[in-house]
Simulated scan of single mutants.
Amino acid sequence: MVSRYFQHAPAVWAAHPDLVAGAVYATGLTATVPVAPELPVEPVVARYLAIARARLAGGTEADGTEAKLPEIQAWRRAFGRMGLKPTQYRCASESLLRRLRKEGDLPRIHPLIDLCNAISVAFAIPVAALDASRIAGDLRVRPATGDERYLAFSGEVEHPEPGELVFADAGGEAHARRWTHRQSGHSAVRADTTSVLIVAEAMHDSAPSDVPKLVAAVADELSALWSVTPSMGALSEPGSRFAFPLP
Rank of each mutant, 00 (worst) to 15 (best):
Q183D: 08
A170K: 01
A118W: 02
D169M: 01
G28P: 12
A62H: 08
H16G: 09
A216P: 09
R241I: 02
G22F: 04
R55Q: 09
F79A: 06
T60C: 09
P43I: 12
V196W: 06
A234H: 15
I109C: 15
E173A: 15
E94M: 04
F167T: 02
T193Y: 13
E161M: 06
L222Q: 13
A36K: 02
L69I: 08
H8F: 13
V218Q: 07
P10L: 10
P230D: 03
A118F: 03
I113T: 10
P126Q: 14
P107C: 08
A144Q: 08
A46Q: 14
L100C: 09
G59W: 02
E38I: 13
P208C: 14
R47L: 10
P143K: 04
V20H: 10
I198D: 04
Q88R: 11
R142C: 11
P107W: 01
L106P: 11
R77N: 13
A129P: 04
G239C: 06
K102D: 09
V228E: 12
E148I: 01
G22E: 00
P245A: 01
V127Q: 02
I113G: 11
L29R: 04
A14M: 10
V20A: 05
H186M: 15
A224F: 02
R149Y: 13
R142D: 09
Y150L: 02
L165W: 07
A191F: 15
A168H: 00
D147P: 01
Y5R: 06
D114T: 06
A118I: 01
R149I: 05
L100K: 01
S133C: 12
D105C: 08
Y5I: 10
A219D: 05
V215A: 03
V2E: 13
R47F: 13
V228S: 09
R99S: 06
L235N: 09
P238N: 06
F167A: 08
A188S: 10
A216F: 12
E164C: 12
I72Y: 09
I125K: 00
A92L: 04
A129S: 11
H204W: 04
A92I: 00
F242R: 08
S133V: 15
L225Q: 04
E71P: 08
L112R: 02
S93W: 05
D220S: 13
K68M: 09
G28M: 02
S120C: 00
Q7N: 09
P162T: 07
S120R: 03
T30I: 05
I125L: 12
P230Y: 00
A122V: 10
G137T: 11
A234Q: 04
T30D: 11
A23V: 14
V44K: 12
P34H: 08
G155A: 05
E158P: 00
P34W: 02
L115N: 07
V24R: 00
A9K: 05
R98F: 13
A50N: 09
R4W: 03
S231I: 15
V215C: 09
I109V: 14
M82Q: 10
I72W: 11
A174S: 07
K68E: 12
R101K: 07
D205T: 12
P160V: 08
V199N: 06
G172W: 00
